[in-house]
Amino acid sequence: MQKRTIKYGKLVRDRIPEIIEASGETARVRVLDEWEVIPALTAKLAEEAEELRQAGPDDLLGELADIHEVLAALTETLGFSEEEVQEAAHHKRAERGGFSRRLWLDEVTSNE
């Protein structure tokens, strides 16, 4: 039997190596240094956002859950509480609005 190796180079959920090993495969992992975590989480957020963009109707909730989990990890890593993030979101919504009106900005013309 020939071995095959797939390289990932990405942040994964904590139990993924255990799940891989349980399937009979071998996972090689390392713990990120502190300076590596924020770039890895932001890359993971972009990955999960793209997965949400491409998801079918049956997968939307799971993809939103993945994004929520990455945001929770980023919140903790950056030293904020969930309450602080919610308060900041409320403040921004009060100043600039939310997204409920579904406004798409096509262009802006200056009067110069």
Rank of each mutant, 00 (worst) to 15 (best):
A46Q: 08
E112T: 08
A43H: 09
R102L: 08
L61F: 07
E69W: 01
I20G: 00
T42P: 00
T26D: 10
R30P: 01
I20W: 03
D14R: 09
E63L: 02
E63T: 01
S110P: 09
T42S: 11
A65N: 03
A72I: 03
G79R: 06
D59Q: 15
K10G: 00
R93F: 10
V108L: 13
L60E: 09
R93S: 10
P57L: 05
K92S: 12
G97I: 03
G79Q: 07
D59W: 02
D66K: 01
I6A: 08
E51P: 06
R102W: 13
L32D: 12
L74W: 02
D59I: 00
A40P: 05
A55G: 02
R30F: 01
A88K: 09
R96C: 01
D58S: 08
A89W: 09
V85K: 04
G24S: 11
R28N: 08
D59H: 04
V108A: 07
V37S: 15
V29F: 02
E36A: 11
S23Y: 09
A55Y: 08
S110D: 08
W104N: 02
D58T: 09
D58M: 06
R53W: 14
G56L: 06
E18H: 11
T77D: 02
P57M: 05
E76L: 07
D33N: 15
A89D: 12
S23H: 14
G98M: 08
E25H: 15
I20R: 02
R13F: 03
L64D: 03
E82Q: 10
S110E: 05
I38C: 09
R4M: 12
M1Q: 11
P57G: 14
R93L: 08
T42M: 12
I20H: 01
D66F: 01
L52S: 12
H90A: 15
R102E: 11
E47R: 05
V37G: 14
E18W: 11
N111D: 05
E50S: 10
R53D: 11
N111M: 10
I38E: 15
R28G: 00
L103R: 12
D58W: 05
N111T: 11
D59N: 04
D106I: 06
G98A: 02
S81V: 11
Y8Q: 00
L71P: 00
R53N: 04
K3N: 12
L78A: 10
V70E: 04
D14H: 01
E84M: 13
K7L: 02
L105I: 14
E63F: 04
